[in-house]
Design a protein around this nucleic acid. Sequence first.
DNA 1: CTTCGTGCAAAAACTTTGCAAATTG
DNA 2: CAATTTGCAAAGTTTTTGCACGAAG
Lengths: 156, 156
Amino acid sequence: MEARVETEFRSDIEYKTLLDKFKTVLKKEGLRFTKQREVILNGLYSVDTHLTSEELYQLLKSNNPKSNIGIATVYRTLSLLERGELVTTLLTDNTKKYELSAKEHHDHIICTDCGKIIEFVSPDIERLQESVAEELGFKILDHSMQIYGICKDCRK
Amino acid sequence: MEARVETEFRSDIEYKTLLDKFKTVLKKEGLRFTKQREVILNGLYSVDTHLTSEELYQLLKSNNPKSNIGIATVYRTLSLLERGELVTTLLTDNTKKYELSAKEHHDHIICTDCGKIIEFVSPDIERLQESVAEELGFKILDHSMQIYGICKDCRK
DNA sequence: CTTCGTGCAAAAACTTTGCAAATTG
DNA sequence: CAATTTGCAAAGTTTTTGCACGAAG
């Protein structure tokens, strides 16, 4: 069987769009749009990786030295974003990592040797997931999938 | 597209087999087979669910009141089992859960409403994963996949 | 016997909470 | 203004570590 695979998602959501999405979520929950929340969203957007809460916190501190964000706010905002489905989480090496999910859904293939993470989507797999869920009586909301293996470079 | 789905794996590995597997892993790493390690493996085997470290610890305490296992040993053994690929982990509701993976590989579909977890395997998806990995230059070692949705009962 | 594993308690790491002050709508 | 959000520090949780003793090979 031959699988179609797509691996390019990076620049496909504009920051403006993301921001609007966020504001919509906030409004829907009756929450306020604050400078800190925007800085955190922007930090996640600006970075092309999966971050732990601590890494994100450090990033924000160095990018916005004056804005003096607290780690508690980072946690609170990450939960908020997670509930609002703008952020997804990933458990790698026993640590929880966050990334923006809003750009476009994708899965992960992770090299257990060097830690490299490639994002991909296989429309065929997506479709099968739908059909599995249906057979088991579920209405799908979301899914997460990680493949672990050794990448080409590490096999040399 | 129509997906084959299998959902029965429970009794398919015998405890004896599992134990042998464990002993092999231990031997390979030059580690010792101890009473505690066996109690922990057995606890995981005896239970048909995904447990947090704490839950497993409590279970062992009540099942083996005299054996007086420490939580530290539970953690140490779980990591060991995880490295040896006898146990896999799952992040649900922000908590890490462990289960024996040795019985047979499977994925999870999780009801976000009632928390019910159904285990399944779709051979078709497995095959596509192989082919995705190949296209991206990876040699697959393992994977994990969770589908989140609402189950039939909760949609009533 | 030598080495590794254990329990315990302490330490570290990670996450959440209470509260007074600042900020938002 | 009223009400929410924030930073801070303190309190919870969860996980790891150091060490003296016990157990395994």
